[in-house]
Design a protein around this nucleic acid. Structure first.
Length: 440
RNA sequence: GCGAUUGUGGUGAAGUGGUUAACACUCCGGCUUGUGGCGCCGGCAUUCGUGGGUUCGAUUCCCAUCAGUCGCCCCA
């Protein structure tokens, strides 16, 4: 028996309905914020990620799916979305657009070769947004507000925005040196991982879980204290605008992000849900003012976020988020071989009228057929056998009330449509379990 | 990359070094061949993730491997 590759998962129809509902919400919110969809390739030339995400990051140094194609080009399955969007922005010269501030969202699968655990897969979905062309802190605030609105629209309540600033290039450098200097003598007292980070990615030391209670770590210098005037003002303004919009946040002085390209604002949105286990960061983002230039474009600021959709999905399952209904309107039971042609004809004409219909494909006893009709959630069952054929009629059973009527067969689709339009008596506010005709 | 843990039918799950692998639900058939949802009766794992080994004999013990789950790391 074949198995799916490690770290991947199938989305079966019931789940797929939830994904569709989720995607609908994302698009709706994106529209409101005036972000437009951009779709870039799932694979890019390897070099893009090395330059964009950072040679030293775990993501590109040990987690990429990289291979040579038949012409020996090095190709990498995208491990994140920003690099590809930036590449596209530059390659298509979108900075020359008549709209100077370009705002995009993307949605799709990403690939990282990681040991999987809850909410972390090798192929996973991200929804992200990027805005180019303005260094205004209003845009930082907008991006955060956008992320919060997505969660609000999904009715995920218990979330917390953590925000911090690591400053511009100058401030970053200043801070990094201060940190290295501070830890110089004590580094051996920290965990092995931290000692490695000291060389490779010192900022991450702040985030260490093992040593989080260690006084050495608690008293480390914090990026916020090393911001130069410009960076400080940028951060303060961002906060001001968040306040103005009524967005709640928590200034997390230890928050840093692992990707090299961040400058100024960095933030994460955490959901307080047990189902997420250790993977409770569902959204992360920040400003990246040097990325466009470093990838060969004009000096253009940018800011963005990315959601881990798989984690979002876990959160949604926990709050009983419902997918679109799977129920159908009409199920055909055709009795006898001689009636099957008529049956197919009815089926097709109902479908052309937009009635969600299906037909019985198994030559089974009626008992079975009725059970089947119930399983597919049919609102009406149409029974057509010898008797009906002789009288040019068809028998309709309302599964909700159990009532049966016999109508002329040419009235079939009109009858069903009229019945479906009738306000439902048992269903109030769509709360009923099998209500499929009060969709918004 | 490191660590822990699990792997028995469609699902949830018992179980033991030895010739019938419990139980529950689902599913299928019949009672009831044009009206289901209840009830009753009957059926559904030549086999216990896969491959080796130990043994007279292994689903049960050992090793390897694959996969799941959880944590570290990393990240969304």
């Amino acid at each position: 028996m074949y198995q799916k590759p490690k770290g991947t998962y199938d989305i079966l129809p019931v789940q797929a309905n939830m994904w569709q509902e989720l995607e609908k919400t994302l698009r709706k919110v994106s529209k409101i914020y005036d972000y437009r969809e951009i779709r870039t390739p799932i694979f890019e030339n390897t070099d893009l990620f090395h330059r964009g995400v950072g040679e030293e990051t775990d993501i590109v140094s040990k987690e990429t799916y990289t291979f040579l194609d038949r012409k020996k080009r090095s190709i990498t399955l995208r491990p994140e979305g920003t690099a590809g969007v930036v590449r596209s922005y530059i390659e298509n010269k979108l900075y020359n657009s008549y709209i100077p501030v370009q705002k995009y969202f993307y949605y799709g699968p990403m690939f990282r070769y990681e040991r999987q655990q809850k909410g972390r897969y090798r192929q996973f979905m991200q929804f992200g947004a990027e805005a180019f062309g303005s260094n205004n802190p209003m845009l930082d605030a907008e991006i955060i507000s956008y992320a919060v609105s997505v969660l609000k629209a999904l009715k995920i309540k218990d979330v917390k925005v953590h925000i911090n600033s690591i400053g511009d290039t100058e401030s970053k450098e200043l801070y990094k040196n201060a940190l290295l200097e501070y830890l110089k003598d004590d580094i051996t007292q920290l965990c092995g991982d931290c000692q490695t980070r000291y060389q490779s990615n010192p900022l991450r030391i702040l985030d260490c879980k093992i040593d989080s209670e260690n006084p050495i770590l608690i008293n480390t210098p914090k990026p916020l204290d090393y911001l130069n005037d410009t960076s400080k003002k940028h951060f303060d303004d961002t906060i001001r605008f968040l306040n103005a919009m009524g967005i709640e946040y928590y200034i997390d002085k230890s928050l840093v992000r692992g990707l090299d390209y961040y400058t100024h604002t960095v933030f994460e949105v955490k959901a307080n849900l047990d189902v997420l286990g250790a993977q409770n960061t569902i959204c992360g983002g920040g400003r990246y003012n040097n990325l466009v230039k470093s990838l060969g474009g004009p000096d253009t600021p940018g800011v963005g976020f990315a959601f881990g959709m798989d984690r979002l999905m876990f959160a949604l399952e926990a709050i009983d988020f419902k997918g679109i209904s799977e129920n159908i309107h009409l199920y055909f039971m055709i009795l006898g071989d001689e009636q099957k042609e008529d049956g197919m004809s009815f089926l097709n004409s109902c479908r052309l009228k937009g009635i969600i219909s299906d037909i019985d494909f198994l030559d089974k006893p009626m008992k079975f057929k009725f059970r089947y009709a119930e399983k597919v959630g049919a609102r009406f069952v149409a029974i057509y056998g010898e008797r009906e054929k002789q009288n040019n009629q068809i028998n309709i059973k309302d599964q909700k009330t159990g009532e049966e009527v016999t109508i002329p067969k040419e009235n079939l689709s009109n009858y069903i449509i009229t019945e479906l339009m009738k306000p439902s008596q048992t269903c109030t506010n769509c709360e009923a379990e099998s209500c499929d005709d009060c969709e918004e």
